[in-house]
Design a protein around this nucleic acid. Structure first.
Lengths: 212, 212
DNA sequence: TAGATTGTTAATCGATTAACAATC
DNA sequence: TAGATTGTTAATCGATTAACAATC
């Protein structure tokens, strides 16, 4: 790959652009300028052009971008032109909600296995997917060739689960447990810390108040 | 406020530090160095010291930081030394899961109102909080003096809900709908885009493969 | 005192923005 | 052709890292 070094922020924006373009495509809009994309997603037009320039030339000078073509390019760049099997560990409230979350399926993610330690949950189904004991994690992961695992167990169990996922052959982890996890260098990991997001808000609210 | 300009990344890390310090405090660890904090949360020790330096001098040279004191300082900086009433709009799976999420309550966030348009849901309770129609949003928001609203409705409804939250007097919004929302400049908004996080993973997985 | 670790400055690195030539 | 908008370079801005004097 001759692609230089792509900022992670660029990737997250590409994901946002593609969603926006899908929306426009549904409205049968054919052409769009970087400036219109920028306004639609809340960034600058230079940013849009810069982000796209990492991957090639997708527009026509004087005209703009073809909505459908650009969408397809970005989808391909992100690797979303295929279905991604995902295993979910933790069938609590969050795991259940995420397993059923339409936003994942829409974008090509399919939960192929849900795992929990609670014997009462095992055997129940979420969206036609059976909740299984952790002992079957490796078997199911390999059977479906899943490369992505999602952790929604309590923080105290998260490291152990991460280890199991790695052992099972998972390549990338999305971690919702509020805990820093240690994984081998070749495993991708991203943390979604729900409380942290609220705390950035409270910080800003606290700062804004002249009192305190 | 004479505080210069604090990077948002610093705030998110402070939140992570505070959680880690709470953990250490529970284990009765009294003192810790910037290097140990760094290892515990996965950043550099210079980063830890720099982040803290924005707000004062909390350590002792040659010794380190007092775990409990530093925790209390950070909690205060983030504005978490009080309870924050929160209103939740959208009582679907995600809204329900988040309303019950222990991680929010642990950090001082309390859901004081849950709202939905579905007449079948109205009157039901989630954790003792009744699901109410949107018409009561302003009333409940003002009654509890809630400054924070969480949006978990579908993308198509999110802008309308954001407008209602702003009208109701909300100052900060945590948006889980995959949509860019327009709000007045004085309203804080943060987007948590669940699919985007998975897509950063698929991009990296796709890049790593020599094939494709 | 000797050893350790902070607080802070300066250097580096990386990402965003502005500007404009290229070109449809 | 004239007008519009891309692709790209250079300038700016901001955040991270390295290094070390201060000091417990």
């Amino acid at each position: 790959m001759k692609i230089p070094k792509i900022p992670e922020a660029t990737i997250t924006r590409l994901s946002v652009y593609s969603r926006y373009l899908a929306e426009l495509s549904k409205k049968n809009i054919v052409t769009i300028s970087s400036n219109e994309i920028a306004e639609g997603v809340g960034v600058s037009s230079a940013q849009v052009r810069k982000d796209l320039a990492y991957f090639g030339e997708f527009g026509t000078r004087g005209v703009g971008y073809n909505v459908k073509d650009l969408h397809d390019y970005i989808v391909k760049i992100l690797g979303l032109n295929m279905e991604w099997p995902v295993v979910m560990v933790g069938a609590g409230r969050l795991g259940t909600a995420l397993s059923m979350y339409g936003g994942f399926r829409q974008r090509g993610f399919k939960v192929v296995g849900i795992f929990d330690v609670d014997p009462n949950k095992i055997g129940q189904k979420i969206n036609d997917v059976e909740i299984r004991p952790l002992e079957q994690l490796e078997e199911i992961t390999k059977a479906h060739n899943a490369q992505i695992g999602i952790i929604t167990v309590p923080a105290s169990e998260a490291q152990e689960v991460a280890d199991l996922l790695v052992e099972s052959g998972i390549q990338a982890i999305l971690n919702f447990a509020p805990k820093n996890l240690n994984v081998p260098l070749d495993i991708e990991i991203r943390n979604v810390d729900l409380a942290v997001n609220l705390e950035v808000l409270t910080f800003n609210l606290t700062m804004k108040k002249p009192s305190q």
